[in-house]
Nucleic acid binder design. Structure first.
Length: 247
DNA sequence: TAATGGCCGTGGCTCTCTCG
DNA sequence: CGAGAGAGCCACGGCCATTA
């Protein structure tokens, strides 16, 4: 897992075996309830009841329901991060590797299947402006976007590489496509084009963006052409680009 | 084995909010 | 406006590992 190490409860007492077990029971109870109850409707009382403990005990470990959802979202993010390992395998950046791209999509979707309610809640709170969830969301997707961007850049010779920020923009676009479908309820997707088809489509897009070209295709302007194009290109300013390497 | 102290869970209370 | 549900806090007592 795993969620950052928790060493004390809300009263500042250091957690022993029992305390860690109770905290874990509360988190498991929340996961169970999320299968049938919206996170918006979750209550500390229902979680405590499911964990066979009292609401007072719940407040010894968590501030409120949002707090336990945050702890669960960190666990989920850790599970999701495991798919980055695909990029550590030998992967020729100049070849179109559809099978590997499909595996990336399938593993990403599988992680979302395991944590959909929690990750959706995390994204909802981040979108609502909660700084803690926003930070958790960024820290969740940034490592994968960095891997994708590095893979894109590695397909080019040094003297003909696209701008790093362009590679990051493409990586962010791919991630948005990945997550956009993964976040959707599979039942809804299956009523439409079907999950298999959507996975294959994303895999094809990813395979083509990641495995391509070599000497460039004229998409990335250089020299004067690049500087003149900059006039019409808005300067990236969000936290993703701030965290990404600049040219 | 008894004493000790930290860890932990609970009962009961007040306050707030929602609903009829 | 009263009833009910839930949030949150506090004080107390039980449990358990450690120590003499």
């Amino acid at each position: 897992m795993i969620e950052g190490v928790v060493s004390t409860n809300k009263q500042g007492q250091s957690l022993g075996r029992k305390g860690l077990a109770t905290r874990g029971r509360l988190m498991n109870a929340t996961r169970q309830l999320l299968k049938t109850v919206s996170p918006i409707e979750l209550t500390a009382v229902s979680i405590a009841k499911q964990a066979k403990t009292s609401s007072a005990t719940f407040y010894m470990y968590f501030d409120d329901v949002k707090d336990i959802m945050f702890a669960l979202s960190r666990e989920a993010a850790s599970d999701l991060a495991a798919i980055e390992k695909i990029f550590d395998e030998p992967w020729d950046p100049k070849s179109i590797d559809y099978d590997r791209a499909l595996r990336l999509v399938e593993e990403f979707d599988a992680a979302w299947d395991r944590h959909r309610e929690i990750l959706r809640y995390r994204n909802l709170e981040a979108d609502r402006g909660d700084a803690r969830f926003e930070e958790a969301k960024v820290q969740s997707y940034l490592p994968l976007i960095k891997k994708i961007a590095a893979h894109i850049l590695s397909a080019y010779p040094e003297d003909n590489a696209p701008k790093k920020s362009d590679a990051y923009a493409e990586a962010a676009t791919l991630y948005a496509a990945l997550e956009g479908v993964a976040e959707a309820d599979p039942k809804v997707v299956n009523r439409g084009l079907g999950m298999k088809r959507m996975q294959q489509a994303r895999a094809r897009v990813i395979a083509h963006v990641l495995g391509r070209r070599g000497n460039g295709d004229g998409w990335y302007a250089s020299g004067k052409a690049r500087s003149s194009r900059r006039k019409t290109t808005p300067k990236p300013s969000d936290e993703l680009v701030q965290a990404s390497p600049q040219d």
